[in-house]
Design a binder for these strands. Sequence first.
DNA 1: GTAATTTGACCACA
DNA 2: TGTGGTCAAATTAC
Length: 326
Amino acid sequence: MDSSKSWEHKSLLTEIIEGMELAKQLRLSLSAASSSDTRQFLVQRILSSYEKALLILNFSGPAQSTAGAIASVPESLVSAYAGPCFDDYNKSPKDHQDLTDVSKKRKIMAKWTDHVMRVSSENGIEGPHEDGHSWRKYGQKDILGAKHPRSYYRCTYRNTQSCYATKQVQRSDEDPTIFEITYKGKHTCSHGSNSVLPPPSPEQQEQKRNKQNNTSHQQQSQGIQMSFPTNLRVDTKFLEDRENMASPFSFTSTSFGSAGESNYYLMPPSQMRNIAGNEQLSECGLTEIISANNSSTNSPIPEMDFPLEPVEIEPNFPFDTTGIFS
DNA sequence: GTAATTTGACCACA
DNA sequence: TGTGGTCAAATTAC
């Protein structure tokens, strides 16, 4: 690591640690009935701190570090962003036609990629991700050069609501606890992230079948929101810069809908709201998601509730900074 | 009984 | 022709 990288690393750590400290102060402030001005000030400071950290990431080389952070965003978030307006940018009318013509098989599939992310399961169980959508597995294929087969999922409501969203899940060769997930298409069904409690994902169902441990049961009974801090960790390696992204993220709506073949997200909704603004995001259907995320502690979108949950800012929160920023 | 998963076969693309 | 994506019958789970 050269000196500039080291400086960035240090600055990032400083900003993130400051954000944590401020969040703790805010928590104390909330419990201590301090003035709303104080709280707002703390919130502003927290957001500012994270903005700076993200800015540093943005300047410090696109694909590696920032993409790593992207992978830390729970799939649900990314998937949600990928929803309403996420994929029309690269589909021609013919593509839309083909989507409804199953006999054409994979004619257009090569151009379908919406976004790719990697999620990691610390306990190694299958299915580290839950995105609020209901998926049905329709195939599995051994991929040349890959140690693990690739699984293919489509929306459960493909037939009933003509929802043609699909995803591919592949276990990483290097780290079997990491899953590379590729989303394709958009959800047009009404059973997505807005459902009160989504049906268990195929991965969760597999967990149930395997009965590997009690954790999955606890996750299900307690709500999915708790599964992120416990089961997911930041995948610092993330994706290679295969899409040659000029910038892995920007705070404008373009990064959500028309940036290119693939899109990578690294920000929790709260950050996106703060930086991008609701007006722009709403074009992609983000407002609904974000407001839901912030509107209630009993969010109907449990997996959206990750940014400032107490567990996230506990002192023992697994800030694996060596992995994040290396 | 219904829904989801598995898996071999088929098809399109490079 | 090999590979990846999808189909669909058979199987399994609930």
